[in-house]
């Protein structure tokens, strides 16, 4: 389990101020808040120490020799584009609008104007640390999500889709907005030489949308191989996904059997955009609309469920389109 708050680690603070006295005062207060503290007496040295120690917090004076606070802040902020937000607070006795505006423009996350009481200082540090912790949490979650998406993608390409049949006859165009869009395509050979094809789109994206993919692929392949009719395969897929998935997860899917010996296509569209049959010349011969809620929504197929049966030639093309394509159009 990742520690999101990082509370058990001592946090590092960097104090940049040309007055040794001020450094000392701020250091004592920060130590009371549980920080380990480093200090630098000018902006340039502050930037160097930032690079060396990667602190969790920077306190920055504005008027300093060699490099002033604004410039040092800009340098530091340009370096801290990684996973952690390093909050930077300007400490100054310049109580002007201009100082405030310039501080924020230089990348500062806050400004504290002297004189302030130790209590006010500590409160400011706490509030800024809270924001920084939230930022860290978001970053960590984002990374975990990315890993999940990569796992889902790998599962899909290595385990499931690599076992498809007749890959030389099925062209796939895949342009997903995200790493794993929830799309799945399957193909398998029937005992009589027909080919069953499925294009599906699971709700959502990432790992959550891929949990139904393995049982779906198994059912589709095993039943096809054993010679069940397409309608029987569809009925089983629907019932299985209904049993398996939570109510808000489902699969929009188009199923097609291409039968070369009787020159027919059997098509069923449940929740995908229209399926098209094109002639060799590129004319639309047929357009098959969705006629059933997506798989896994209802416990059983609706009683009037039937396949569309079309005569096709070997030169015709059947085009299945998933929702994801419409989303990014």
């Amino acid at each position: 389990m990742t520690n999101l708050t990082g509370k058990h680690n001592t946090k590092l603070a960097l104090v940049v101020d040309d007055s040794a006295m001020q450094c000392k005062v701020l250091s004592v207060l920060l130590k009371e808040e549980g920080y380990r503290v480093f200090s630098a007496n000018d902006g340039a040295r502050g930037v160097k120490m930032y690079i060396k120690y990667k602190p969790d917090l920077v306190l920055m004076d504005i008027n300093m020799p060699i490099m002033n606070g604004y410039e040092a802040a800009r340098k530091i902020k340009s370096l801290s584009t990684g996973t952690s937000l390093c909050p930077l607070i300007f400490i100054t006795s310049m109580d002007t609008d201009q100082a405030f505006i310039e501080s924020i423009e230089a990348g500062g996350d806050g400004i504290l104007v002297r004189p302030f009481s130790p209590e006010v200082f500590k409160a400011k540090i706490k509030s800024i640390q809270r924001i920084s912790d939230l930022y860290q949490q978001v970053k960590t979650l984002q990374q975990e999500q990315q890993q999940d998406a990569e796992l889902a993608e790998k599962l899909m390409s290595d385990v499931i889709e690599s076992r498809n049949y007749a890959l030389d006859k099925i062209g796939i165009v895949k342009k997903a907005a995200e790493l794993f869009s929830g799309d799945i395509q399957l193909s398998a050979l029937c005992p009589n030489g027909d080919v069953n094809i499925l294009l599906g789109d699971f709700t959502g994206h990432g790992l959550r949308s891929s949990i139904g993919a393995i049982p779906l692929a198994e059912t589709f392949r095993v039943m096809t191989k054993k010679g069940f009719t397409l309608l029987e395969v569809i009925g089983q897929v629907n019932q299985q996904l209904y049993d398996l998935l939570p109510p808000d997860l489902f699969l929009g899917a188009a199923f097609v059997t291409i039968s070369s010996h009787d020159e027919s296509a059997y098509i069923f569209n449940a929740g995908l955009p229209d399926v098209y049959v094109f002639s060799k010349q590129g004319d639309i011969k047929n357009q098959i609309e969705s006629c059933h809620p997506p798989m896994g929504v209802l416990p059983y197929l609706l009683p009037d469920t039937k396949l569309t049966i079309l005569p096709i030639k070997i030169t015709d093309r059947v085009i299945l389109i998933s929702e994801a394509i419409l989303k990014i159009k």
Binding site: G252, A270, G271, L272, P273, S290, H292, P293
Partner: peptide, 8 residues
Amino acid sequence: EIAQFHRL
């Protein structure tokens, strides 16, 4: 319509 929600 695509999702045929009028059936539900």
